[in-house]
Amino acid sequence: MAGGKCIALIAHDQKKDDMAEFARRHQQVLSNFRIVATGTTGGRVLEACPTLDVLPLKSGPLGGDQQIGALIATGEVDMLIFFVDPLTAMPHDVDVKALMRLATVYDIPMALNRATAERLIDFNLSGTGAGHVQTN
């Protein structure tokens, strides 16, 4: 993936509507980023915001979480927004934990719920200017 800052978007099944609404609400800021997303989430975001630069990868359980993890490890993803459903058991829970571990190891901003994602977006609007993610 070449050029510009990149955000990864992932949402568990019960959170996909929330992610699509989040993208719709913040479409202007998100338009400053390249976006990678797991399959269904990426499709839902594109339906809600067809002008965004979204690359849908595989579905999470079919390797999408691991694809995003690899992009984090190679420095191609600058921020992770992952709307987690804590009330539903995930058959690919090991992959989800590995993805969160990689985001932590590579010290990228990570939001696991809408409230934190809103703060990261607000930070990009006010703290450093739209489209800029500060990392250590």
Rank of each mutant, 00 (worst) to 15 (best):
C6S: 11
A8V: 03
I10G: 01
A11L: 05
H12V: 04
K16V: 04
D17L: 04
D18L: 00
F22R: 01
H26N: 15
S31T: 07
N32A: 09
A37Y: 03
T38R: 13
T40E: 08
T40P: 01
G42Q: 08
R44Q: 08
R44F: 00
V45S: 09
E47W: 02
E47S: 13
D53Y: 00
V54D: 08
S59L: 06
D65C: 01
D65Y: 08
D65E: 13
I68T: 13
L71Q: 14
I72V: 14
I72H: 11
T74C: 14
G75K: 13
G75V: 12
E76W: 07
V77W: 09
M79N: 12
F83Y: 12
V84T: 11
P86D: 14
A89P: 07
M90P: 03
V94E: 15
V96T: 15
M100G: 13
A103H: 03
T104A: 10
V105K: 12
V105L: 12
D107H: 11
D107S: 10
M110W: 02
M110A: 13
R119A: 01
R119N: 08
I121K: 01
N124V: 00
L125G: 08
S126L: 06
S126G: 00
G127T: 11
Q134R: 10
N136W: 04
